[in-house]
Nucleic acid binder design. Structure first.
Lengths: 221, 221
DNA sequence: TAGATTGTTAATCGATTAACAATC
DNA sequence: TAGATTGTTAATCGATTAACAATC
C-alpha cells in the first residue's frame, strides 16, 4: 500500500465513519423494502419502530440495518430524517448510478425480464442480449440480440459487468464461462444449475426448483 | 390429542424412523440440485463425498442432508444406493404427486411462467390464471384465465392450495387477501412487497430488487 | 487389514433477539 | 421531567464446519 492510498483510505473512513462498506446478504435484501416504504410515507422523520411494525420485523434488526446505512445518527425520540435515509439507502443499493447488464438466453423468461419496466428504478439497464437461436444481430424491444459466439467480444467492448443468465441447463456452464471471459463479475442465474465460477465472481441463484421445494414441502407439513 | 391420532403418530414414526418430517429451508433448497446430479450419473452407488465435490459444498453438510432424507442408512465405503436416494428425494420434494397452482397476474412474467415447461418435472401444474385486465374467461396456452373477482370462488372450487403471485405492487395486498380467502396456503410471491398473511400461510419471496441489491452491491465491493 | 465413508458430537460462526444504559 | 427512541453489549438460535469413533 502506498502512502497516497493509505491517506485516501483514512480520509474516506473519516468522511463517513458511520457507514460500513460491507453489509450482510440479509440486510441488503431488506433494504429495498425499507426504501419502498420510505418513499411512500410523507412524514419528515421515521423511526425503526415504525418500519419494523410495517413489515412485522424485529425492532432491533431494523435499527441495526438503519445504523449500518445511515450517514447521520438517528435522534432519540425522533428517529431518522426520511429524506436523508432514502438517499443513504439509494446510495448503498447503487440506485444513483446505472448498472448495465447483458442477458443471455432470450426465451420466455428472458423476454419477460427484458420487458420488465421495474428495473429502471433499480438502476439496472439491460443493454444487449445473446441467444443460441440467433444467427446475426437482431433487435428486441430496442435492444440488440447477438449470436452467442459474439458474447465475449461484445461484453468486453461494452464493458458490462453484470450478466443475467436465463439459458437452459444443458449448455449453462459453457455459456457461463464465455460470460466470465467477456469480463462479467456478477451473474444473476435463473438456470437450474450451480455454476462453477472463479474466486471473485458472485452468483445470485434464482432457482425455481429450490423455491418450489420450500413451498411444496410446506403444503405437506 | 385423541388416542387414535396418538397411535397414528407412533406408527408413522416407526415406519420411517430415519426420515425426519421437517427440513431446514437450506436443505430443501439444496435437494433439487442433488436430485438433478443423481439423475445424471450412472453409477449404482453415490457418496456424500462425490456430491459435495460436484457442487463445491462441505462434505458434512451433504452427509447431513442425505441422512435426513434417505430411508436407508448409507453404507460405509459405498455410500448410498443411487436409485433409492433419487426416490427418497423425490418423495421429500413431492415430485411424485402433482401440486396444482393458480397464477395471479398474467403479464409478461406471469405468461413466461405459464409457458415454462420445467414445472411439470417439479410436480407443478398451473391450472388457472387471474388478471385484472380480463373481463370474462379467456384461454391462454390451454389454461383458463378469469377476472380477479372470481378468484376466491374458482380457487375454492378447484381446491388449489398454491398461488403464484405476479401482480403489480399497487393492489398486491388486496389481491393476496382474496387468494387466501379462496383457500390458498402457500404463495410464491414475485411482487416487490412483503405480503401480510395470517399464521400458517407460507410466502416464498422472489424479489427482483432484493436479488439485484446483492449483485449491485458486490459490483461496488 | 486398511481406508473410504458413514453418522454423531462438539466447536464455530453469523444472524437474530433480548436487555439496558444513554439521550433528546 | 417522562418516555420514546437510539445504539451497544450480551444471550440465543440455527446452520455450518471440525473432529472423531464406528463400520464394512
Amino acid at each position: 500500500m502506498t502512502v497516497h492510498s493509505h491517506i485516501d483510505n483514512m480520509l474516506s473512513i473519516q468522511e463517513d465513519a458511520r457507514v460500513s462498506n460491507t453489509f450482510s446478504l440479509q440486510t441488503l435484501q431488506r433494504l429495498p423494502y425499507y426504501l419502498d416504504f420510505l418513499r411512500k410515507i410523507e412524514t419528515d422523520n421515521v423511526s425503526a419502530t415504525v418500519i419494523a411494525a410495517e413489515f412485522g420485523l424485529n425492532e432491533v434488526q431494523v435499527r441495526k440495518d438503519l445504523a449500518s446505512v445511515s450517514r447521520e445518527a438517528g435522534q432519540p425520540r425522533k428517529g431518522f430524517v426520511t429524506k436523508s435515509l432514502i438517499r443513504d439507502i439509494e446510495d448503498v443499493l447503487g440506485y444513483a448510478h446505472i448498472d448495465e447488464a447483458v442477458i443471455v438466453g432470450v426465451g420466455h423468461l428472458g423476454t419477460a425480464l427484458v420487458n420488465y419496466k421495474g428495473f429502471a428504478s433499480y438502476g439496472l439497464k439491460i443493454v444487449a442480449g445473446f441467444d443460441i437461436s440467433v444467427d446475426e444481430e437482431i433487435w428486441l424491444n430496442h435492444m440488440p440480440v447477438y449470436p452467442v459466439d459474439r458474447m465475449a467480444d461484445v461484453i468486453s467492448e461494452l464493458g458490462v459487468r453484470l450478466g443475467i443468465f436465463t439459458v437452459g441447463a444443458e449448455s449453462a456452464q459453457e455459456v457461463c464461462n464465455q460470460l466470465i471471459e467477456g469480463g462479467v463479475e456478477a451473474i444473476w442465474n435463473f438456470a437450474p444449475v450451480m455454476l462453477q465460477v472463479p474466486e471473485g465472481i458472485i452468483v445470485q441463484n434464482e432457482n425455481m426448483a429450490s423455491a418450489l421445494a420450500v413451498l411444496s414441502h410446506h403444503l405437506r407439513q
